[in-house]
């Protein structure tokens, strides 16, 4: 595995993978940064408001972002016509494991930055209310889990179809459907994996008064069952992707 991982890193050279990984959090930074409420505005618990915004932004950006990462990771082999040589040099298992590891590393980086950005923005804006560490951690874990699940599903599509177009289109449609599911009755959002950021989120808009225009944000209970389901989905997609790599005839 170390040798295979080293090969993956060599292939990533000059592909500007890091830049692409950083692009996603950058967009989050700009978006949330512009939309973040001011301290004296009509938002109660602005820090919670920030963490409430995060999942909605994620639901739009992440499906496409993960599609970009996954297709680039696999497409490099197709572009170089390399599988038939690689399979004589290394086992398919080590190739897949190395790709999955590198992919996971990229997704982890993005998830860490996403949470860090939300925290940094809140601190920079001088929000007074504090968010309990457990909720921050939960937010990070949920974001990571859903992103990994999305990444694995896109990787599966990229391997099966050897063409980035369908995988990307699924990401696009998924983002649209996921975003919309946030505005649907809560039960619908349980059936839309791309939008799982939103039902998993432990932050809510507690109340919005149309007259005073005061928005109150709060917190709610964690949803461990849904989180577990996301992890199961992620594992399943990885397993299917692994099977696809193993069975694919060159």
């Amino acid at each position: 595995m170390p040798r295979a991982l080293h090969a993956e890193l060599q292939k990533a050279h000059r592909r500007h993978d890091l830049a692409v990984c950083l692009l996603v959090p950058l967009v989050i930074l700009v978006w949330v940064g512009y939309s973040a409420p001011e301290v004296d505005s009509s938002t109660v618990h602005p820090f919670s408001a920030l963490f409430y915004m995060g999942p909605t932004v994620d639901a739009i950006l992440m499906p496409i972002g993960m599609a970009v990462l996954a297709t680039r990771l696999w497409d490099v082999e197709e572009k170089g016509d390399f599988p038939k040589l690689l399979y004589t040099l290394q086992s398919r298992r080590s190739l897949f494991a190395a790709k999955a590891a590198l992919g996971f590393g990229e997704v982890l980086l993005i998830a860490v930055l996403e949470t860090a950005i939300l925290l940094a923005l809140g601190w920079w804006k001088g929000y007074a209310d504090a968010v309990p560490a457990s909720h921050i951690l939960y937010h990070f874990v949920c974001t990571l889990a859903v992103c990994v699940m999305l990444f694995a599903s896109e990787l599966l599509l990229a391997v099966l179809l050897a063409n980035p177009l369908p995988a990307l289109c699924v990401g696009v449609v998924g983002a649209l459907v996921g975003l919309f599911s946030a505005f649907m009755p809560p039960i619908v959002s349980l059936f839309v994996p791309w939008g799982y950021f939103i039902p998993l989120s432990s932050f809510v808009l507690a109340s919005w008064d149309a007259d005073t225009r005061i928005a109150v944000y709060g917190m709610r209970a964690f949803r461990p069952l849904l989180l577990a389901w996301v992890v199961v989905l992620a594992a399943a997609f990885f397993a299917f992707a692994w099977r696809a790599v193993r069975e694919k005839e060159v």
Binding site: A7, Q10, H13, R15, K79, G80, D81, F82
Partner: peptide, 20 residues
Amino acid sequence: SPSGYPHLTGEENLQVVADL
């Protein structure tokens, strides 16, 4: 057809294969 990552140099391609 021969294999070769288009975004890497000839030498880098051989490095990948040699290392594996």
